[in-house]
Design a protein around this nucleic acid. Sequence first.
DNA 1: AGAAATTTGTCCGTATGTATC
DNA 2: AGATACATACGGACAAATTTC
Lengths: 138, 138
Amino acid sequence: MPTPHYGQPRYRAIADELRRRIENGVIPPGALLPAESTLTAEFRAARGTIRKAIATLRDEGFAATEQGRGTYALSHLDSAKSGDAVEKKTSLRTVPASAEIARVLGIETGSLLVEKQTILRRHGIAYSLTREYRIPPG
Amino acid sequence: MPTPHYGQPRYRAIADELRRRIENGVIPPGALLPAESTLTAEFRAARGTIRKAIATLRDEGFAATEQGRGTYALSHLDSAKSGDAVEKKTSLRTVPASAEIARVLGIETGSLLVEKQTILRRHGIAYSLTREYRIPPG
DNA sequence: AGAAATTTGTCCGTATGTATC
DNA sequence: AGATACATACGGACAAATTTC
């Protein structure tokens, strides 16, 4: 079989279809997507093509994958079902830069950074932890 | 030839090597990386493996690719290229929870979390790194 | 202007490794 | 321990964009 991809590539069309299913609730948040082998059969595409489609969804934040387990749908636009109050707690501290973070910020490992931590809770239960690192002024 | 990847995958090792060359100025910002066919010969890896390594560098902001042309080296210490706007780069991955984060979120250490990382740059210089951790649904 | 060469993009098939169930 | 599912790697083929002649 030849490999034409006139117009839109197949992996993108497949990603579009899977994204639709997630947004429409056909695959609800938290549910596993069909296995790669299953999708291979359904779309009649090679595994590499299926994997590229799923990678697209990961990049977009629609899905997350765990080796040996599967790929599950994420709730992309929440976490507002609010009305119920969201409690937000922010704290500041100074921390040394890890090697990983230092590389991204283009500074030396161990340099001091300002870390702003935000914890989001609902009904007293923390569901999100955010840490922002910045190079201190001066 | 078998296809083992004990320890670190080959594509990551290749990405590390190329990143080193960019950071060390062996491949200066704006210069083209060797063609995929050339890298295939040098590292004796399949083209897909080379492409995966380059994709890693793209995600990290060390390179940019144009079809029919090649892959350019970038530098986050380099200005130019984009205007005065703030460049925002978001990536998503799953990571095990550190003890500290696990405590805050009330989960077990090592549990898998979804990490959304956002890097803010201006004039090509990263000045803010944000990491948000959430418990995956399901 | 046109054709050929170069380079990246997509797709297929297969095999093996690694993590989870 | 076996089955299932994702991860890595190989090799080959054709498509599309750019450069070169």
